[in-house]
């Protein structure tokens, strides 16, 4: 892989990541977030995570042996790694 490609990609990813983190501080510098924003804040992360799960599973070959069995078992066991509250 070319180093110019990697460096360019790292710079772009750095800017993109930092942008997502600084946006609220620029937008809501002087006011308190509204109830709607609070609602989004509370529920958006779950939605995004579910999207990401489907994204990560998009290349599984369900139609050929072993029919994604490894992924099904793996996802099934993920629950045992979460914190028991």
């Amino acid at each position: 892989m070319e180093s110019s490609y990697l460096i360019g990609a790292i710079i772009v990813a750095t800017v993109a990541t930092y942008t997502t983190r600084i946006i609220p501080f620029l937008l809501f510098r002087n006011c308190e977030p509204s109830p709607l924003i609070r609602y989004i804040e509370l529920n958006m992360p779950v939605m995004i995570m579910v999207i990401l799960v489907f994204y990560a599973l998009k290349d599984v070959k369900w139609e050929v042996y072993p029919y994604g069995l490894a992924e099904i078992i793996g996802v099934g066991h993920c629950d045992s790694f979460t914190c028991k509250v």
Partner: peptide
């Protein structure tokens, strides 16, 4: 460009973290 857009969308949830840290 694809890397930039994908990273931005993936990390967009951090925007909502920031909201509650203001």
């Amino acid at each position: 460009l694809e890397i930039g857009i994908a990273t931005f969308l993936l990390n967009l949830r951090h925007t909502f973290y920031g909201l509650s840290m203001i």
